[in-house]
């Protein structure tokens, strides 16, 4: 399936900032399930950018704006070919078994996991857990508190919390799992989901919708062991810390 996509990233500051170094993950990941056919990236005021890749093969766009500015805006448009969300790659799967900082195996996760009656096979376990998160947890637009513990306590959180808890639960059941940053059509936020390694392949799991991703148009940007390794934006600048981040992704089926 070929789709056209556009993705807008806007970071605005209350007061002008300067000496702004940034690193963005915006260019979709290239792998066996998505082929980037064409893309164009623009930054506001013609800020120049450079590209490299990190160890997860995520595409990095980085640059510098020295003069005072109130916003960093980036837009990427392009065409991508998507296929069924089952694939494998060169990365060692075992990398995704140990617990990581944002998806820890803390007492709360252990207790929660123990309270569940899980089915036998990996595939069914993953399905069960994805469904469970969808049914028992509520999605918030804005984060109220941080971390997996409060997510378990209040049963509500943002997209990241869903993914981190699912990852922690999968890993504690011996299923390698990784964090995915990306977007779906029309959601006014970055969407995150999970890839779990089962029967020799990575599969996409969206705990916020309670589904195994199959042919739905999910565009993957980056992955890592947890959010900290595949953030859409990282930066350092001189100025007040308050900023507002807006993200808009659009996906249109290309009817050719």
């Amino acid at each position: 399936m070929k789709v056209n996509f556009s993705y807008d990233f806007t970071l605005t500051f209350d007061e002008p900032v300067r000496n702004h170094h940034f690193c963005l993950r915006m260019v979709p990941h290239t792998n066996a399930i998505q082929t980037l056919l064409d893309w164009k990236l623009n930054l506001n005021d013609g800020i120049p950018y450079y590209q490299t890749r990190d160890g997860f093969e995520n595409h990095l766009v980085y640059g510098y704006c020295g003069k005072p500015h109130r916003a960093l805006k980036a837009n990427i448009e392009g065409e991508i070919e998507l296929s069924t969300y089952i694939y494998h790659d060169q990365e060692p799967v075992e990398l995704y078994l140990p617990h990581s900082t944002l998806a820890p195996l803390c007492e709360d996760v252990r207790d929660f996991s123990r309270s569940l009656k899980l089915p036998v096979t990996d595939f069914r376990k993953a399905h069960f857990l994805t469904q469970l998160l969808y049914e028992q947890f509520r999605a918030l637009e804005e984060p109220k508190a941080k971390g997996i513990k409060t997510f378990l306590l209040y049963k509500e959180g943002i997209s990241q919390d869903f993914s981190h808890l699912l990852i922690a639960l999968l890993r504690s059941n011996g299923i390698p799992a990784r964090f995915v940053n990306g977007f779906i059509d029309g959601v006014n936020k970055t969407h995150t989901w999970v890839e779990a390694f089962m029967d020799g392949d990575w599969r996409g799991l969206d705990p916020q919708s309670g589904i195994f991703i199959h042919d739905e148009p999910y565009i993957k940007i980056a992955h890592g062991r947890d959010f900290s390794e595949c953030q859409i934006h990282r930066g350092s600048y001189i100025g007040k810390r308050q900023h507002i981040l807006k993200i808009m992704g659009r996906i249109e089926r290309n009817e050719q």
């Binding site: 990190d54 160890g55 997860f56 093969e57 075992e94 990398l95 140990p98 890592g224 062991r225 390794e229």
Partner: peptide, 28 residues
Amino acid sequence: VQKILKDGIIPSEFVFSSKAYLPAFANT
């Protein structure tokens, strides 16, 4: 390429569970 892990000289989980291993710098 992580030959030493594939050949089982060091258990891979031993490396991957270490905070000192930085996969974001693999293949650099």
